[in-house]
Design a protein around this nucleic acid. Structure first.
Lengths: 344, 344
DNA sequence: TTGAAAGCGCTAACAG
DNA sequence: CTGTTAGCGCTTTCAA
């Protein structure tokens, strides 16, 4: 019952069917009939044979020969996360426009896996790479740049400012979000943070503390809790903060998943938003408007993030040069709904 | 300033560095030293040279030679949709486990694009393909099966029952959802449908009408509206239905995006859920529990969908045989919340 | 125990 | 206008 996979038609067979040599067949099909002054008749017979046999040239062989694979690599921490899925999509669409294909890999938020996947992609001779790096270590990525393989980091990045990076303006977003809270009289603001030491988290913390400082509120590190951008972290952090600090009047969640966890925790605690507790979140969400307490949020332009990353990458591939500007910031937007109440 | 990309180290260079022939180098690195009785010393010197030069064998050349690419193709209508993103993720993880890589493509719900992408993937000599087909036309897919390229359809499928397909039990899900409504006394149930003539939509309609029949309610086709699984379709369909049929007491949305549109429409219309209108939706959502009216929904096991598709595919690749069972149904689960009220 | 050579499918330089 | 040939980087006979 096991049938061998149907052999692919090769150029050689097309050539034979058309009664010409492989080179002629190759040229005719590559649209170089003009340049090589191939007769109309042979050109047509080659095309006919190719069509008849349903010839599909092997991109594998083409790539080996030309040393150009038209392959892009994308490594993300979790493809199922809509945030990363949107980024993946934009890159894929840009790739398709340029006749590139995308090799997508999921590092599962694991640094070693990331290193392994990047190597694997390199072995496939990708022409460009987009990574949202998992960790704080980046040797394997600087190495890539040294090897002149076009690389763009997205969302997360490093202190190492030479790597091309596109990410949101986390600091400004967090600053404005915090201001929204302080403007309403909130002084005890708990933070549900994400993965510590990642660029987005660090910068958001910075924006938060800067705004506090501006208001003359002293920064209290015990008001920060959480260790991931996921629901579970938000849930536990909210519980912890709310029980240890009854004086907290507002929560700032660093992702919509964190906010989701906060929602679950506050529901359990019987705290009502916004009456008993104000809430603001990084990342908007389609459903945010229809929640029991329509969620005020800091909206990242995820598609734009992906598009900029993609164009930065394609540009590098086309020109062979790195962009002059390495650091790219995408502005965020505040969506004002009603999860924040005045505190007096 | 433009620097040429760093040439990859080839086996030849490793061989030279180790002072052996390419064949020996190849064998030593392939772990075939034993089989070929290569001396410990040469084996080690080859390995040392490879390591020193950071040799990464070209999978391109390997694939061309072995006619095995270890490449999977995945074509989905919209990667940014969390539903498809989850499927993509499961396939990717399964692939990574088996040392395969995944070529991901986005058909943008466009049949022609899908055909083109599938061809492109085939040209890259993928060893297996997962598609969520956009349309009702399937010639290009049956052709693939005829060519003995392992293929698995996911979510959507065709009447053509020979294609390996894994999808949810839409009919049963819709039947139970409808029963939830009829049990509460709802007889005028509007349907916010998705893309007509797709398998999920057709089967859901069937489950819906079967349940109505069982209750002795006559099926009214004018109670069906919508043409896509997206927010916009849900929004317009809800408006249309609610204005044309004031007698409607409940809405059945065929996707969570459709439900989102319904939420927007009902908010505009000032209809309160569940008091003025009951709502149930296909597809659960993390935020569903925290909506103003916690949404009762039919939850598909998306990860399972992806996992089954992946394992069906890997199995075909490994054995070279098609599975005996072509049609695979994943059970759905009803999540009872409070968007349905009794109607008397 | 190792090397030379062929060949996977394709393109391009060179030769008519 | 077209064919012959070499070679992309690798594995695997075949030969020693």
């Amino acid at each position: 019952m096991s049938q061998s996979a149907n052999k692919q038609i090769t150029l050689k067979e097309v050539a034979e069917a058309a009664g010409v040599s492989v080179s002629t067949a190759s040229r005719a099909l590559a649209g170089k009939a003009e340049a090589y002054r191939i007769s109309r008749s042979t050109e047509r017979s080659v095309q006919a044979a190719a069509k008849r046999l349903q010839f599909q040239p092997s991109l594998l062989a083409k790539s080996l020969r030309s040393q150009r694979t038209k392959l892009l690599g994308v490594v993300l921490p979790n493809i199922a996360n809509p945030f990363f899925a949107s980024i993946a999509r934009e890159i894929t669409l840009a790739a398709e426009e340029n006749e590139f294909s995308v090799l997508l890999a999921d590092s599962q938020e694991n640094g070693e896996t990331e290193v392994h996947l990047v190597e694997q992609l390199q072995a496939r001779q990708i022409e460009g790479l987009v990574v949202c790096p998992v960790g704080i270590q980046n040797q394997h990525l600087t190495k890539i740049t040294r090897q002149n393989l076009p690389l763009v980091l997205v969302d997360r990045g490093f202190a190492h400012k030479d790597l091309v990076t596109v990410t949101s303006d986390h600091r400004e977003g967090a600053r404005v979000a915090t201001k929204l809270l302080t403007d309403q009289g909130h002084h005890q603001i708990g933070v549900l943070q994400g993965l510590p030491d990642t660029l987005p988290n660090t910068e958001r913390l910075r924006g938060y503390s800067e705004e506090l400082k501006r208001c003359g509120i002293t920064f209290d590190p015990t008001l920060i809790a959480g260790n991931h951008f996921d629901e579970s972290s938000g849930y536990h952090a909210a519980h912890q903060l709310l029980s240890a600090h009854p004086e907290i009047t507002a929560l700032f969640a660093f992702s919509n998943q964190n906010a989701l966890g906060a929602l679950r925790a506050t529901a359990e605690l019987g705290r009502n938003i916004p009456d008993d507790l104000s809430l603001i979140a990084f990342d908007d969400h389609p459903f945010a408007a229809y929640l029991a307490a329509p969620l005020t949020s800091v909206c990242q332009d995820v598609s734009q993030l992906g598009r900029v990353a993609a164009s930065l990458l394609m540009e590098q591939i086309k020109t062979g040069k790195q962009p002059i500007e390495k650091q790219h910031r995408i502005p965020v937007e505040i969506i004002n709904r009603s999860s924040i109440a005045k505190f007096e």
